[in-house]
Design a protein around this nucleic acid. Structure first.
Lengths: 238, 238
DNA sequence: CGAGCGACGTTTGTACACAAATATCGCAGT
DNA sequence: ACTGCGATATTTGTGTACAAACGTCGCTCG
């Protein structure tokens, strides 16, 4: 995913050894997409790696057709890039990462502003349930718990973005979030991000939404996301 | 493109009668993508229209394979949506349109802030050339001139976004811009948007970039985009 | 020994054939 | 007459075959 890791091609299905149960996904199209995406986000395919269709088809156990469609999606989502002939894993610099986080802060804070007026009681209740579940996790280094936090965190944010009822907002946010949210898992491990603090911020956001206060909601979300930005010092990014 | 226009299916190549020279595009993949996209943006395929692959293949003079890939891109870009089985033209409400413009204002103003520090002399000169050419147009209703303005306007904005050197910024902006910028052409016709005023704002933005003033650039771009927002009263949107 | 040209291998692009899924229409039975 | 079941038609999903483009390696000629 990052520069300077050296280059490697596609090896075989072994690189999917992570936590993704690929063999349980029936439809080839979804298998191909999830498989390639996971390989990129997990770092199995480093930034700059060439993405040959045939090798990816073998890797995901499908044929080239679903792989081609998956690659189109990944390019559109910014996780892969294409030149005239080939496709490669996108290469994120630290500068790029910083920009994506700032964009995400702006997008989601605007989403929170809209959500403050449109969110339903049921959605607020859902947010409160999520906050409660995260509370039970507390600060930890246990990978399974951290993964659980990441999933709940994702649900928290997508619930709010969904409350805007805007397809475009959901689409753009998903694109801006997909990378950082996956990376957060690594930051938590390497940098011991404070889960408890993060959840206190979640509580503030829910309070703002419950109060139907657009400005507060916007500011709270902005602060929340900016507080989770990776810092250069703590990381070994180029 | 909008709700309430009634529903229609794909007719034949006639609906491409617009200004797009589809037959000059050699590669089927590009033909399919441009053709379908143009049909959507021009309104030939109203919002909610079903998008059957075979009919689109005939319409664009290709086969289903390039059409499928084009549809994947269009869904990823938000111009089409998909349910379990079919794909349809996206349906934009006035509310959705408003949100997209506000997102665009936030994205591009942030882009301008970054660009103020990274833009090169050559790019500033390019922006000045564009402003000059728009000056020569002035206020007009002539469709050809309005189209020329739209193209120059697009180049102005993509040059600034490109100056951020961020792939993600360019990708997200392109998605947020693709719809509104096409719609602007219609607003200019129907609402007589002030081209001269718009270009004065362009001049301000260039001045801010030349001064390397991030805050000014950000504010100027924000004001510029918000001033071109469609207003409900002037339109017959749902 | 170096440069240029040509053949080959690799990768992507396109089309098509077949399979699977789903909605619709009609028919029959109650 | 209404409901439920089944056949059929339409549409999408997948795999594969073939064609085209591009890069590379090696050979030959200067």
């Amino acid at each position: 995913m990052f520069s300077g890791n050296g280059r490697s091609g596609v090896a075989d299905a072994e690189i999917l050894a992570g936590d993704l149960q690929l063999d349980e996904i029936e439809k080839p199209a979804e298998r191909a997409y999830q498989g390639i995406r996971h390989a990129i986000l997990s770092g199995a395919l480093p930034g700059g790696s060439h993405l040959p269709e045939e090798a990816l088809a073998q890797m995901t156990g499908t044929s080239r057709t679903p792989v081609r469609e998956a690659l189109r999606r990944l390019v559109a989502e910014g996780l892969a890039r294409a030149d005239n002939r080939h496709r490669y894993v996108a290469d994120f610099s630290y500068q790029e990462l910083k920009i994506v986080f700032n964009i995400r802060a702006r997008l989601e804070s605007y989403a929170s502003r809209i959500a403050a007026e449109l969110i339903t009681e049921a959605e607020i209740a859902e947010l409160e349930r999520i906050v409660e579940q995260i509370d039970k996790i507390g600060d930890t280094d246990d990978p399974a718990q951290v993964r659980l936090f990441a999933d709940l965190n994702t649900r928290f944010h997508t619930t709010i973005v969904g409350a805007t009822r805007s397809i475009q907002m959901q689409s753009l946010s998903a694109q801006a979030i997909s990378l950082p949210l996956e990376l957060i898992k690594q930051f938590v491990w390497e940098q011991r991000v404070n889960i408890a603090r993060s959840n206190n911020q979640h509580r503030d956001i829910v309070a703002a939404l419950r109060a139907r206060d657009p400005e507060w909601a916007e500011a709270a979300m902005s602060g929340h996301i900016l507080s989770t930005r990776p810092r250069r010092k703590a990381m070994s990014l180029s």
